[in-house]
Amino acid sequence: MKKFARAVCFCLIAVLLLALLNRILMPDTDFSADLKGGVADEPDYIMLGTSNVFYNVNPLVIWDETGYTGYNVSSEQAPLIISYYELKNELKKRKPKTVFLDCGAFEYNYGIPSFNQLSLDKMPLNMDKLRLISELGEDDENNQIKAKNEYSKINYLIPLYKFHERWKDILDGTLKSRYHDKYEHTFMGYVAEKSVFVYEKQYKWLPTLKEFGGTYLTEVSDLGREYLSKIRTLCEENGIELVLFKTPSKGWIREMHEAVTELAKEEGLSFLDMNSEAVLEELQIDENKDFADSSSHFNIYGAEKVSRYLAAYMKQNCSFTDKRGHKDPLETAWDQMYQEYLDYKEN
């Protein structure tokens, strides 16, 4: 019996050491909103989706415009299935009045495993995560569901399996910085990027797939439908309004714009597509100043335009209350965060 206790003890130490190693070696990619001090205990909204959310929507600008509080819950190329579980996790902690779902993810099914790895690494290990790992599939080059997963799911379950070789990064000092660089300046789940990217070739807005040349889905897939319906049910169960939207993106194709418009109509959901001519007219995107990279992500200037528009939309369509004018700690905290953002912008 004594020997058994010893063996168990040994195994526990080994597991703890490995867990520690896991923690040390996992790339730091978490840029989720810092909600310390109760700054968003009762958020007005959550912006859910892909990089089109975390690069394009700045909750602090929305605060400055409206006095509404909210934050982004998004990951690189998160497919709808991941967004669903991210929302589920978030709702265990806080319940917003409205969830805005960016529809970019309708253009593929499961997306790219290495991106999904980043999303999953941020999630706490619980039953939901296990369920997500078991359900998560993989796309082929046409974004259709692959018959067989090639990516070993053990990487999702035990990130150390994938990242153990990062011990080498200790040597050149990039262990913590390599994946952090991009997310150095984050504000409520918004990733601020100052660099300016100018397209050599002029891409039009809402191109057809043929014009754009990618390999996106042109119709809402069964999987897309299934997880939209799950997200919807989740919102309904929690008394949350669900709004579909799409931030401006040159990779958002006309076919999908039409398909999602149709889907929203069927489902009786609002769909705000900011790629429409009318919205773009109002946004006044400057092609020489507002983009951050070749993937149609906005820098701080473009993101401000998108966020102001969203603020105006909320004012008009949502029944949130302006939390300014009370001089309470919440207001002070948000003002301070906005000031921090302005400081970053100016310097």
Partner: peptide, 26 residues
């Protein structure tokens, strides 16, 4: 414990491909 750590840390398995993190489409 050191042997376990050495195998886990320095073993060539699984694999981490930095290339796959190059930010692309979205």
């Amino acid at each position: 414990l050191l042997l376990v750590l050495v195998v886990v840390l320095f073993g060539k398995y699984g694999g981490f491909d930095t290339g796959s993190f190059v930010y692309q489409a979205f």
